[in-house]
Design a protein around this nucleic acid. Sequence first.
DNA 1: TGGGTCATGTAACCTGTTACATGATTAG
DNA 2: CTAATCATGTAACAGGTTACATGACCCA
Lengths: 182, 182
Amino acid sequence: MSLKHGILGLLTYKSMTGYELMKSFNESLSFFWNAQTSQIYRELDTIEKKGWVVSKIIPQDDKPNKKEFTLTNEGKDELNKWLNGHSPEKSMTIRDDMTMRVLFSAGSNKLGLVKELIDYHNQNEEYFKSLKDIEKQINSENDSSKTSKDKLYWSMAIKRGQINSQANMMWVEQCLKIINGE
Amino acid sequence: MSLKHGILGLLTYKSMTGYELMKSFNESLSFFWNAQTSQIYRELDTIEKKGWVVSKIIPQDDKPNKKEFTLTNEGKDELNKWLNGHSPEKSMTIRDDMTMRVLFSAGSNKLGLVKELIDYHNQNEEYFKSLKDIEKQINSENDSSKTSKDKLYWSMAIKRGQINSQANMMWVEQCLKIINGE
DNA sequence: TGGGTCATGTAACCTGTTACATGATTAG
DNA sequence: CTAATCATGTAACAGGTTACATGACCCA
């Protein structure tokens, strides 16, 4: 799914080190991506070789030295190319564990499936709540880390997660009805 | 996401060759998984080494010989283990191109984004319709390839795709409202 | 004669995950 | 003293995609 472009996108906000990028992904962006340090450093390596970013080592006395990455013009071009050049037809498949479990539970354990569906429902409920919290935090006045325009786009992304988890819950409810009416 | 278990699941219905598996995935199961032959043959290799399936070469005069794979008891055990042993907490992130485009379009091309959102909406609408068709076909009397019980589980899986694409469309509508009200 | 279906695969590459390694500073 | 945070990475593996290769038969 191209972590490369995710990194480029984050670097448009400001120059960062690998460590800071990891924190961005796993904290403020955790609702849509969790990236391991190992992967981030690897991708930074390759996109630096491609010329999309440049790095500068910043010595620090009290802490370990850090390596800050900055977008180049090529990097900006690449990001824009990616943003504009939308892939004509992406696969649109569901391919997740839950669907697969449902499909292949026909023969066997009805009770196990019901339990799993309920667990899944609960997970989605919690996730939905946490997204509500994140939304509130972003839209609150005292979050000055983003401009009001940025906030708009971030809340759109979060809305997606919310709608998605609601859809998942609706699906579970329909499934349970079908199973019980069987 | 473990094509291995997808293959095991399909083989519970009947023994199949790699080619037939590929067709199942890319035809009747296309709404949730598209698998390349290259990957299927590779996975068949590894799961045969694990002892989950056994193969038998069936000579054919008019067509190329084929290699049919059959589930073993170990394979059935493994599938059941997988079906029952649900992973406690999966990541729940959104991580798709559309969300990323939205997040990183804050700075730049509003018009391009609107166009993409509309395209995305249309794609989802078509997908939704095609799922409706598939659903009808499965539930029709003259589809005797599945038992009525199987049909139930299949329609649950398809419902998921339907609800999902509806959710995607709702999201686009909300986004457009937000963008226009900006 | 050319394209589609049947049927098998190999090779290279990209993306993501898990586990491990190092070493300093700082807060409780 | 100990755990957390800062900051860098390596290695191995798992899963998925793209491109390529072969060869026969059937239908238009």
